[in-house]
């Protein structure tokens, strides 16, 4: 492990100092994330980029498990809409999940995540689609009546102007009232990525 260099394509790393300056990561963190990025990006095709297939493989260790939510997260990582994630995309998107990232950033990302149709609103049919995806994934059966009750109650609380869709302002207020909704937006591992990926030390270009 880690000793095979002959066929590994070296990927030019976006300036770690620049990435560290615009994120909650240190330069060492960025270098450690580069090790993670390289591992993921070469898991299927060694092209220095993460495809959707490689993304799913890294999360689930399973190429087949394509899912509404992973697909959606991949699309949000892929900010340049190239169908692949480069290292800069990867670090900037993971920054949203950093425990120190501002709540506003997490709220914005979660809004985009749930606004499946990119209309600028989280609409009722999108919420229903996501609930059905969750129930299918978890193999839970709920009656249609129960699902409707949950959605009705949610929109009563989250959509005070009762226009049937949640705008960014309403979402922000709803999240402030229900901060546990941001739990999925924080990855505790990111507080100490250099411990998770110590091999970066051997490749580090900085002394700190």
């Amino acid at each position: 492990m880690g000793c095979f260099h002959s066929k590994v394509r070296e990927i030019p790393m976006e300036d770690p100092f620049a990435l560290a300056s615009e994120t909650a990561f240190s330069v060492s963190d960025v270098e450690a994330l580069y090790e993670l990025f390289k591992n993921i990006s070469r898991s299927v095709t060694d092209d220095g980029l993460i495809s959707k297939e490689e993304f799913q493989l890294a999360i689930f260790n399973n190429k087949k498990k394509e899912n509404l939510f992973t697909s959606r997260i991949f699309d949000l990582f892929d900010v340049k809409k190239k169908g692949v994630i480069d290292f800069g995309d990867f670090v900037r998107a993971l920054n949203v999940f950093h425990p120190s990232a501002p709540m506003e950033v997490k709220i914005e990302f979660s809004f985009k995540l749930y606004d499946l149709d990119n209309t600028g609103f989280i609409e009722r049919h999108e919420v229903k689609q996501m609930i059905n995806a969750l129930l299918c994934e978890a193999e839970i059966k709920l009656s249609e009546e129960t699902i409707e009750t949950i959605i009705n109650k949610t929109f009563m609380d989250a959509d005070p102007n009762q226009d049937g869709k949640i705008d960014k302002y309403e979402w922000k207020n709803f999240v402030y009232e229900n901060p546990s909704l941001l739990k999925v937006m924080t990855l505790p591992y990111l507080r100490d990525v250099t411990t998770a990926f110590p091999s970066f030390v051997f490749h580090s270009k900085v002394e700190d």
Binding site: A58, I59, F60, N61, K65, F69, I150, S180, L181, V184
Partner: peptide, 29 residues
């Protein structure tokens, strides 16, 4: 009986239970 209606989980709490929203897999190898 406190008289309050039983709490209903909100839709986003339910959605948040999806393992597919959890990126920990990147770090758990």
């Amino acid at each position: 009986n406190s008289g309050s209606s039983p709490a209903i989980i909100n839709a986003f709490q339910l959605i948040g239970m999806s393992s597919c929203l959890d990126l920990s897999g990147f770090f758990e190898k």
